[in-house]
């Protein structure tokens, strides 16, 4: 006889309705895929089909009475991250905050409703309506922050903090070059 031991994490889900269950699974499938799901309540054939098609391990019988549990905290970040160079001709519209870990080339356009940080050099056009922006631009760039075009000579070749406090826009250069990993 051969016995193996595994330590696994179990997610206990109280099913309220099929639709809410499927919506929850769809949203969190990437995380839940790797764990065992303990289902309480009625498991409909549609739900079984869904779990099978996503290759998820689940059970309906499990005794966890003497185990401690944690409440599941689901955090949804509103930050969009772009880890690629933004090339000429690209037109990116983002309703949330945006972090770009590369350069924005001449001929590219960004329209951001939230805050914006770009770690590369900006040669393109930026429209940002957030409260905060951190950018380094070349003389070719055009930066419009909350409807106001910011004079390029203020920004050139340095990282700049640009803050909108509801009344005025404050541009302050960062003297020490940030070291992005």
């Amino acid at each position: 006889m051969k016995i193996k031991q595994y330590s696994i994490k179990v997610f206990e889900i109280n099913i309220e309705s099929q639709s809410s269950f499927l919506a929850f699974m769809d949203k969190n499938i990437i995380m839940l895929k790797h764990y065992l799901i303990y289902l309480k309540g009625e498991v409909t054939p549609d739900m079984e089909e869904y779990l099978k098609s996503h290759d998820i391990s689940y059970t309906t019988h499990l005794n966890l009475s003497d185990k401690k549990h944690q409440e599941l905290v689901l955090k949804q970040s509103d930050l969009k991250i772009i880890d690629e160079i933004v090339r000429s001709g690209q037109d990116i519209k983002v309703a949330s905050d945006l972090l770009i870990l590369n350069r924005v080339n001449s001929g590219a356009k960004l329209q951001v409703e939230g805050n914006l940080i770009i770690t590369g050099i900006v040669d393109g056009i930026i429209f940002c309506n957030g409260d905060f922006m951190l950018v380094k631009t070349s003389s070719k760039a055009m930066i419009v922050f909350n409807g106001v075009e910011i004079d390029g000579s203020l920004l050139q070749n340095k990282f700049n903090k640009i803050i909108f406090n509801g009344e005025e826009i404050i541009v302050s250069p960062i003297e020490k070059e940030p070291k992005w990993a």
């Binding site: 090339r87 000429s88 001709g89 690209q90 080339n105 001449s106 001929g107």
Partner: peptide, 16 residues
């Protein structure tokens, strides 16, 4: 020269 670079940049974007 800048015009060649920008056009190439766009072409690379289309390839991707």
């Amino acid at each position: 020269e800048v015009s060649s670079i920008r056009d190439a940049d766009k072409a690379i974007g289309i390839v991707d």
